[in-house]
């Protein structure tokens, strides 16, 4: 068996984090939880992540900034970034990809699609 993939889940809504945590663990990921941007940045620096599922609207550092950070540093840039946001306007999505995201999904999301997307990104 391959070593478990490391995934970061960052969102300020506890209930959503809870559901994502369950979903990812169930599917064999090593999960890291961040309740805000600051926590997310700490984890990114510390762990060699394979993927990150980021909310955009967080109280301190927003998801765009985190994504840009990941993609601008060669140390982290292999990490796949998937935005999971309630922001569903065309311009918001564009902005996400401009920040370097690999995928963008809007809330409410389908757990199955999300899982497929993450697995596809890591394949």
């Amino acid at each position: 068996m391959n070593k478990a993939k490391k995934i970061l889940l960052a969102d300020d809504e506890p209930n959503i984090l809870l559901s994502l945590d369950f979903l990812m663990r169930k599917n064999g990921f090593e999960v890291f939880i961040a309740r805000n941007g600051t926590e997310a940045m700490e984890i990114i620096r510390k762990e060699k992540l394979d993927a990150a599922v980021l909310d955009i609207m967080m109280p301190d550092i927003d998801g765009y900034q985190i994504c840009s950070f990941i993609k601008s540093k060669s140390t982290y840039s292999h990490c796949k970034v998937l935005f999971l946001s309630a922001k569903s306007k065309e311009s918001d999505i564009e902005k996400g990809f401009e920040a370097g995201a690999d995928a963008y999904m809007t809330k409410p999301f389908s757990t199955r699609s999300l899982l497929l997307k993450v697995q596809e990104l890591l394949a």
Partner: peptide, 14 residues
């Protein structure tokens, strides 16, 4: 509205 709906949907699916 999206935020609670997201939770509801996610947990219902789980």
């Amino acid at each position: 509205l999206r935020t609670p709906i997201t939770s509801i949907r996610a947990f219902s699916e789980i």
